[in-house]
């Protein structure tokens, strides 16, 4: 996204009153949702893209799309699942555009202060990076988020009946990659 100039921001400040509240939720409600979901969402984006810096940008994009959407979401769980669905699409778009640019997103940041844990995370990061994007999302949603098969299907746009088998295969693949990496 192009950065706005100071002039453009000043001009936007002079827009009519209906532009003051462009979203379906208040800032206070957004803060609560953000505190509850941002870390988990960032971790998901970081692993889906394999690029921590890109995840920073995509986090902003995900919340922007969420705020602009007109979907009616009854509970916090619905909102969280919807956020992850948007994040999946955003990561997919980023992957497509980086493929078009020929960019290399292999910058997997391995933060942390305990060397062993960091090494393990790098292993997991590398193993996930070698999986298909859909399989990566499947195992993450199932084992990190604890999503049900139906929720996973909703998030990834798949049939709920096919999740069990796909998850089984993805898990096998990840296990093999982790074992391969630990040898």
């Amino acid at each position: 996204m192009r950065d706005l100039t100071v002039d453009e921001i000043a001009r936007l400040g002079a827009l009519p009153a209906e532009a003051d509240e462009p979203f379906h939720m208040t800032e206070e409600a957004f803060r609560v949702l953000y505190e509850r979901t941002a870390r988990s969402l960032w971790a998901y984006l970081a692993r889906m893209t394999g690029d921590a810096r890109l995840a920073d940008d995509l986090l902003q994009e995900t919340y922007y799309r969420f705020l602009k959407s007109s979907a009616t979401l009854e509970s916090d769980d619905h909102r969280k699942n919807y956020l992850f669905r948007i994040a999946t699409n955003v990561a997919h778009d980023a992957r497509r555009s980086s493929r078009a640019d020929g960019a290399d997103n292999s910058d997997v940041r391995a933060p942390g202060d305990v060397a062993e844990l960091a090494a393990r995370r790098v292993d997991v990061g590398r193993a996930l990076a070698r999986m298909k994007p859909r399989d990566r999302a499947l195992v993450w949603l199932a084992y990190v988020n604890g999503s049900s098969h139906k929720e996973i299907a909703d998030t990834l746009g798949l049939k709920p009946s096919s999740i069990k088998l796909m998850l089984f295969r993805a898990r096998r693949r990840l296990a093999a990659l982790l074992h391969e990496g630990s040898r």
Binding site: E27, F30, R31, Y34, E35, A38, R39, S40, W42, A43, A46, R47, D56, L59, Q60, Y63, R109, P111, G112, L117, A118, R120, R121, D123, V124, G125, V139, W140, Y143, V144, L178
Partner: peptide, 22 residues
């Protein structure tokens, strides 16, 4: 492994303030 990875990433994430994102 995934939960450890997730916790490590969450712990190390430098997120912008909610107000800035808003």
């Amino acid at each position: 492994a995934l939960r450890e990875d997730h916790e490590g990433l969450c712990h190390a994430a430098h997120l912008p303030d909610a107000g800035l994102v808003w």
